[in-house]
Simulated scan of single mutants.
Amino acid sequence: MSVGRQRERRKAESPDGGPVPGIHSIDTGTCELVPDRFNPNGWVLHINGVPSSHIDLADPERLDFEYMRWIGSLTTSQWPVTFRLRALHLGGGACSLARSFAAKFPGARQVVVELDGALAELVRTWFDLPRAPLLRIRVGEARAVTESLSDSSRDLIIRDVFAGSRTPVPLTTLEFVEQARRVLDPAGVYVVNCGDSPDLATARREAATISAAFTNTVIIADPAMLKGRRYGNVIIAGSDAALGEDPGLARELLGGGVPAHLWRGQQVSRFISGAAVLRD
């Protein structure tokens, strides 16, 4: 390790190993750790100026980002908390979702794939993340890692990878979705966080692509987003098993701080009508 890197590492570590506010150098630019002004136990991680994750040190199950809550609700509607969930997270940030799942599913085995090795090291230093084999952070490119995994080796794959405001194209195509399907158990679920503008063109094509690979597709987003009124997040999930059929899920999604709608069946078909499947 170079002298410069040693200095950066010392700056990013507090005497007790806890979070260190401020701007820190990482392999892909900078990250900034900011105290949550509304929560003395909360921290917000910004990556290259974009809010990426929120962590509550006192409550690992708390998810402040709405889209993460939606993914969490979908996951707990699919499997009981006693299930030994095998989860693959493509995109790490502060590992908020993985940390939450570790608390909800005590038997879970999770891998977080993070491109930025320096960021992965900082997150391990700052936050109380479970250790391997409960939670491993693997440094690598998401598509390459997914393609290296064994068939039917995961129950849940979550893609939450962004370069700026967009997901890299190689992680959106049918060829990649088919790789994710190969890695999933036959009853597994593939979930993506799609950031889109009001025209929803990207979300329509991503949903069409996932629908081309899986038997069932669901979409979760807030009404303003689905009506094309703002930029935001659309959660799209695919599975060959029944998906989103628990009536409690729709009620739970409506009850959050930002109520969300759950679209299935014909609603998804209408949404993707005319949208071209993405390909390599």
Rank of each mutant, 00 (worst) to 15 (best):
D196Q: 08
V50G: 00
G255V: 09
E8C: 03
Q110C: 08
P130T: 03
L88T: 04
G92K: 05
S269E: 15
N48K: 08
S53D: 10
L262R: 05
L253E: 11
I210A: 03
V277G: 11
A237M: 11
R182C: 05
T30I: 12
R138P: 03
P168F: 01
E245W: 01
L149M: 15
R182Y: 06
W79I: 11
P21S: 00
T167F: 07
V3I: 13
R131H: 11
W43N: 01
F83P: 00
Y231P: 00
V44Y: 08
F127C: 05
W79N: 04
F101K: 00
T167S: 14
P60K: 06
A102F: 04
D116V: 09
C95A: 13
T146A: 15
T167N: 04
G93L: 06
A207H: 04
S53E: 10
N39E: 08
N39V: 03
R9A: 15
R109P: 03
M225N: 07
L253Q: 10
A241H: 14
R181L: 07
T173C: 12
L253A: 09
S239V: 08
E61A: 14
T209R: 01
V20L: 01
D16L: 10
A208C: 09
L119H: 05
E61R: 15
V169N: 01
R37K: 10
I235E: 04
A187F: 09
G274W: 08
I71N: 00
F214W: 10
A260R: 06
P15F: 10
A12F: 11
R99S: 11
L45C: 09
V113M: 04
W43F: 14
Q6E: 15
G238M: 10
F101P: 00
K11M: 13
D240H: 14
D160K: 06
S211V: 01
D160A: 07
V3R: 11
G29Q: 10
I235D: 05
V191T: 12
T146I: 06
